Simulated scan of single mutants.
Amino acid sequence: MDIVAVIAENKIREAIKKGDFDNLSGRGKPLKVEDLSGVPEELRASYIILKNYGALPPEMELAKEIVTLQRLVNCCYRDEEKTALRKKLNEKMLRFNLLMEKRGATPALQFYQDKIEQKLLSD
């Protein structure tokens, strides 16, 4: 152990003896461990900060907007409104696909991943 770890460990032990940790919320309950194995290491800290803030990653925001626009298109009866909504939907889908391609996930890859998941779930 390095000197900093030893000092930190000693400070923690002293605080435990003094009872500084006795009134903490969640005492005696298991910690909720975040599974960030799918997030690259260099992005994990920023994802945690964004999650705690209540913000979503850009691809998730776009995905939510795409679902909302698709629902609006499905419910729309006026042709001119439907055309405008479809244009917005296509723009969002294009932006989403470009974003995913930059991250290495192409629409074709996603299509085949979905097919494989459906096959595995149906077996």
Rank of each mutant, 00 (worst) to 15 (best):
L120R: 11
K102N: 08
R13E: 10
P57E: 00
L72Y: 07
A108N: 13
T83F: 15
E80Q: 13
V67E: 15
L36D: 02
E34K: 11
I7H: 11
R78S: 03
D22L: 04
L120E: 01
E9S: 15
D35L: 05
E59N: 09
I116K: 14
L94A: 11
E91V: 11
A108P: 11
V6H: 09
Y53H: 08
Q70R: 10
L50M: 13
K88V: 03
I7A: 15
M1R: 14
S25Q: 08
N10W: 02
K18G: 01
A55P: 02
E34L: 15
R71M: 15
R27K: 09
C76D: 02
E41L: 04
N74A: 05
C76G: 00
L98T: 08
I7Y: 12
L120H: 02
P58F: 00
L43P: 03
L89G: 02
P107M: 06
L56E: 00
L109A: 07
A45H: 10
K11A: 08
L31K: 11
F96H: 12
L31I: 14
V33D: 02
L72E: 12
G54A: 08
G38V: 13
C75S: 06
A5E: 13
C76F: 02
L121R: 13
G26K: 06
D22E: 07
R78H: 14
S37W: 01
L43W: 10
G26A: 06
R78C: 12
C75I: 14
L56M: 00
E41D: 15
E59R: 05
S122N: 04
P107E: 11
A105V: 12
F111W: 10
Y53G: 15
K51C: 01
F21H: 00
K119P: 01
F111M: 10
C76T: 05
L99G: 10
S25F: 02
Y53T: 13
K11S: 07
E117R: 10
G104H: 02
E9I: 10
E65F: 06
